[in-house]
Amino acid sequence: MEEKVIICNDLTKQFGDFYAVNKISFDVYKGEVFGFLGANGAGKTTAMRILCGLSYPTSGKASVAGFDVYKQQESIKKNIGYMSQKFSLYENLTVSENIEFFGGIYGVERSEISMRRTDLIERLGLEKEVNKMVGELPLGWKQKLAFSVAIFHQPRIVFLDEPTGGVDPVTRRQFWDMIYEAAAGGITVFVTTHYMDEAEYCNRISIMVDGRIEALDTPENLKKNYSASSMDEVFYQLARGAKRSDN
């Protein structure tokens, strides 16, 4: 039996009489690349905030890395990594300082930080940039560094919120290489994206519409079940009936 690292049962978040997340249930397995898709305003961000231990659900159950989303938020935060297109690293700290800062925040030992840092810098080929401000790096490098920093403390799960927006295709593919590598090493990857072709990189995909999960399967099965030639078509069939949009 595969190990479950995220378990969600009827998870619900209500704001007044508005159901941002409406009874969603799903499991994510260890080492899986799980795509979490939905139109703008479908409730993805709200659900993700709960799973990251940043917001309490109204009802339902969920656990992340074995910790309860109601009672063990702090333990959840220690066992996950997070990266988004908008917030990743401090632009006016150097590459080295960012690694040190985030390593420290996540409680990695000082001696361990300097060992892993040397290794990371070498793997990314950033030897010459180590004392440069992150703000001076090209976007693609920033994103690769941000991902490496997000898994620097070797979390059980890493949450990626639209990690590849705007990056060039070559970098995007290198980025996915890094994701696969992390997953092969046992880190579960939970990712949102607007690129439907990118959704096909995931082992399984869920699609949220108006607060509910309307479909959850492998990309191959989803295409088969919706008689679609691409994920774009599957998404369109499901999401075009959506009543909600973002603010």
Binding site: G38, A39, H194
Partner: peptide, 10 residues
């Protein structure tokens, strides 16, 4: 269409 979901983009 940057940052806009697939349905709005279409």
């Amino acid at each position: 269409t940057t940052g806009v979901d697939a349905v709005s983009r279409k």
